[in-house]
Design a protein around this nucleic acid. Structure first.
Length: 417
RNA sequence: GCGGGUGUAGCUCAGGGGUUAGAGCGUCUGACUGUGACUCAGAAGGCCGUGGGUUCAAGACCCAUCAUCCGCCCCA
């Protein structure tokens, strides 16, 4: 049997690769405008990095992580997310000394052992940003605005960011009790797996799609009612800032996140083209750095799912510019090959993408290739042209044809491309 | 990890026990021996996902397996 790409992985073939490039460069450009600089971290890390930070109640770490021992007996995990490794690197290189700010972006592969499906992969790529050193709502607003401006630059709009605040630890502890109390009768009546899951992470019930769970929570007060004053104030301020920035948002008290390190502000973004799947999600994680042994550093960040973003772009019919040659050189006689190669070399040296026939096929075939390549011009070189030291230049869009001296062809292409 | 659908030509798909497996699109060749896209003619291209089973006979039926899609779980 032929070997296939492992389950849940995708090759980025040339047709898709041009979209990737487009997206990555757009992201890089916008992140730079906001003062973010790139960081790259290893594909694998010490397992403990994730267990200690995103840990415990999170399925991503608990049951979806690719873990193995290397030949030296070290416990290794392929990174399931980008934030913890970035913070590990920040501490390792002391990139954010106490009292300073640090803005980082990255594009990284992540690995999660779940069941693959539409928009769900085992190897996925995330575009991320992290802002370290500020606990202000301004920082929250900045990263959200960055992501939304990025989407807009790709032509994606029309869906609001869902924002919420899950408060600090004490607030969440209190709210968990309220949920468990409210869900008491539901829990008695449900299966073991669901019950264990909810008891482990009651907040997870909030964004459940199960109608029975939804029904069980009817009348539950919003988590926003449990916020302490400063959390509440910050969340209000965030809304003002997003309004000012013209970032469409909606307050969504059901929005919770699947990684344990989040506190206070959380957000996610779902596009109608991919219902039920978030394209972008993140939040504040003020305790992560200290959990890793650094000075307490307030941080906020997000991840954008590259493959999901591509799916959205495809759904909204966003055409990627596929690179096309300016000219295709048609060799209509045996003696043309050398001249053809010379013109191709000169043109490429001037930065013009040029293609030519490799197989000495018929003139008709070469003209077809020229057409199929998307080139604007066919440069036809045959005995007649060689005799006059000229090239027939046919514009394939307009069908106009003219003779141009071999020495001036490249110049002509430069002016007309 | 759970439930369901689908795997036949490069792509989209037809064929649902009985000769040599089909179509459209695409590809290649040709239709005045120097001109693409349109038209016409022809050709190439298939371990019918893989392994086992039932049968005189399997692309078709059964089992398994792998992949993929749709839900769930989870999230990007």
């Amino acid at each position: 049997m032929r070997i296939q790409a492992p389950r849940g992985t995708e090759d980025v073939v040339p047709a898709t690769a041009s979209r990737w490039q487009e997206i990555e460069s757009a992201y890089h450009r916008i992140a730079s405008l906001y003062g973010y600089r790139e960081i790259r971290t290893p594909v694998f890390e010490d397992v403990q990095l994730f267990k200690r930070t995103a840990g415990e109640t999170s399925d991503i770490v608990d049951k979806e992580m690719y873990e193995f021992q290397d030949k030296g007996g070290r416990d290794i995990a392929l990174k399931p997310e980008g934030t913890a490794p970035a913070m590990r690197a920040v501490l390792e290189h002391n990139l954010c000394p106490t009292g300073t700010h640090l803005r980082l972006w990255y594009c990284t592969a992540c690995y999660r052992y779940g069941r693959p499906g539409a928009g769900r992969l085992r190897e996925l790529h995330q575009l991320g940003a992290e802002l370290l050193g500020s606990s202000s709502a301004d920082a929250d607003a900045e990263v959200i605005e960055l992501a939304i401006r990025f989407f807009e630059s790709l032509g994606i709009q029309g869906a609001p960011v869902r924002i919420n605040s899950i408060g600090r630890q004490e607030c969440r502890t209190q709210f968990r009790e309220v949920i468990l109390e409210q869900a008491k009768s539901f829990l008695l009546d449900t299966d073991e797996v669901t019950r264990a899951k909810i008891e482990k992470n009651p907040l997870g019930m909030l964004d459940s799609k199960d109608p029975k769970q939804k029904e069980a929570l009817v009348g539950l007060p919003s988590i926003l009612n449990f916020l302490e004053d400063d959390s509440k104030a910050r969340f209000d301020q965030l809304q003002l800032l997003l309004t000012e920035a013209a970032v469409p948002y909606v307050v969504s008290p059901e929005t919770v996140r699947g990684l344990d390190y989040y506190t206070e502000t959380v957000f996610e973004y779902e596009h109608p083209a991919l219902p039920g799947l978030s394209v972008f999600g993140g939040g504040r994680y003020d305790n992560l750095v200290s959990q890793l042994g650094g000075q307490a550093t307030p941080c906020v960040g997000f991840g954008i799912g590259m493959e999901r973003l591509l799916a959205v772009l495809e759904a909204i019919d966003h055409e990627a510019k596929t690179p096309q040659p300016v000219a295709f050189i048609v060799q209509a006689s045996a003696g043309a090959a050398e001249v053809a190669r010379k013109i191709a070399r000169e043109g490429r040296a001037k930065g013009l993408p040029i293609s030519l026939d490799l197989d000495r096929r018929s003139l008709k075939s070469q003209m077809r290739q020229a057409d199929g390549s998307g080139a604007t011009f066919a440069l036809i070189i045959g005995d007649d042209e060689l005799a006059e030291q000229k090239v027939s230049v046919k514009n394939l869009k307009s069908s106009e044809q003219q003779m141009i001296a071999i020495d001036s062809v490249v110049e002509f292409l430069c002016e007309n491309s």
